[in-house]
Design a binder for these strands. Sequence first.
DNA 1: CATAGTTGTCTAGTTTATTAGACAAATCGA
DNA 2: TCGATTTGTCTAATAAACTAGACAACTATG
Lengths: 238, 238
Amino acid sequence: MHSVAGGVALWRQIADAIRLDIVGGKLANGDRLPTEALLAQRFSANRHTVRRALAVLAEEGVVVAEQGRGTFVRSIRRLSYPIGKRTRFREGLKGQAASLTSVSISDRIENATARVAVALGLKPGAKVVRTEGMSVADGVPISRSTTWLSYRRFPDFASRINQMGSTTLVFGSYGITDYSRASTRISARHADVEEIQSLTLAPGAIVLVSEAVDVDPEGEAISYALSRFPAERMELVV
Amino acid sequence: MHSVAGGVALWRQIADAIRLDIVGGKLANGDRLPTEALLAQRFSANRHTVRRALAVLAEEGVVVAEQGRGTFVRSIRRLSYPIGKRTRFREGLKGQAASLTSVSISDRIENATARVAVALGLKPGAKVVRTEGMSVADGVPISRSTTWLSYRRFPDFASRINQMGSTTLVFGSYGITDYSRASTRISARHADVEEIQSLTLAPGAIVLVSEAVDVDPEGEAISYALSRFPAERMELVV
DNA sequence: CATAGTTGTCTAGTTTATTAGACAAATCGA
DNA sequence: TCGATTTGTCTAATAAACTAGACAACTATG
């Protein structure tokens, strides 16, 4: 009779709550968590259920249990991605991670859906380049993105991004020395199967979804990107 | 063997996925959903499991089933809350809802935590006013927020917000004719128990969390607000 | 009005989630 | 070293989730 639950297992709710205490700053790095008995009391759950939650967190590397001593916070941090008029992914994360690599997973030419066409100011069905990519900071996947661009204007965007790695550089190679963010829509949802795999998330994890349109200095839309960030690893700062 | 699941029941994942198709625009207002048999196939689930997901969506008012005919999208829309330098909650939602009411739930004086103190530029432990509030658009709860302000500067903020209803008005009554947004941090997580109740969410629902600091024209921080928006009803636009 | 297609209901069986209790193993301090 | 505290492991019972199959009820169409 966990009137609260409903399709989400108690152990997962508990794991989420504890993780939140950690990323939210209530529990600092080497802190000892409350004992399993206390946690069980706090969540009105059985100790075994709490143990399952802790096991998940241990597997994620968020906590470490030591028999006889207790369970300890192991470290976790969230990267902050600043969003503004001049949003640059790599620059924005500079200094927050030792390594930051972006890889292009796949690309193809397709016809613009209504949504993509509106965003890019094209006719529905117009040819667009679609590239799938992801970024990894210090070995941890932090974003998974899908980008659409006009095929007419950027016919070989895909091959260039493969070589150069950075969107800013590729735009430069097309003569666009500067560009800016026209709009960003932010929403959130559960990660889907593909995202759970590619971002190495626990099933049921939450992703922040940003839907961004970049424009050149003339105000012409040049790219429409749909990026997914694991909410437990990233936050967006406006 | 739903190797994908993990703490989140299949019926809930299916309900979430279908709801996403609807709010995401893949399914329009009066559209007929695929048959239960097809959905079962698509999600590799039993028809009964799909039926449970549809039952949830029907209870939410998102779909309506009609025996012999099919199941239909009933309507759903997401409000867009624009965030910028001059962010005003009520103005931002103008035109998107027929009615918009904000209520103050409770308030109290407390000592600033480290986080609150930093945000407001106060000494840790300084006296702050804390108010809990929520907003309802067309009868549907769309936000639940906690706001902290310096007690020294706004000693009876609480009673004024109760009378006036709008933050902008209360600031005006303190002689602050204009104010602007210094920063907004956006993250996402599962709704907690209190939020599920106050926002009338389904258990396991996702909330967008915005952490905002407003400043007066002199650049002095005047308020620190932590707002939670149901991700299924709201999106944030930068 | 017969038929194909769709949602609604019922029974039954398996797997997963949760609770419950007992005890072992490790740690720490008196 | 003893005893209290804490995590680790095992068994067992109940509730919720999921699958399976069959058939009823309703709708639209030719």
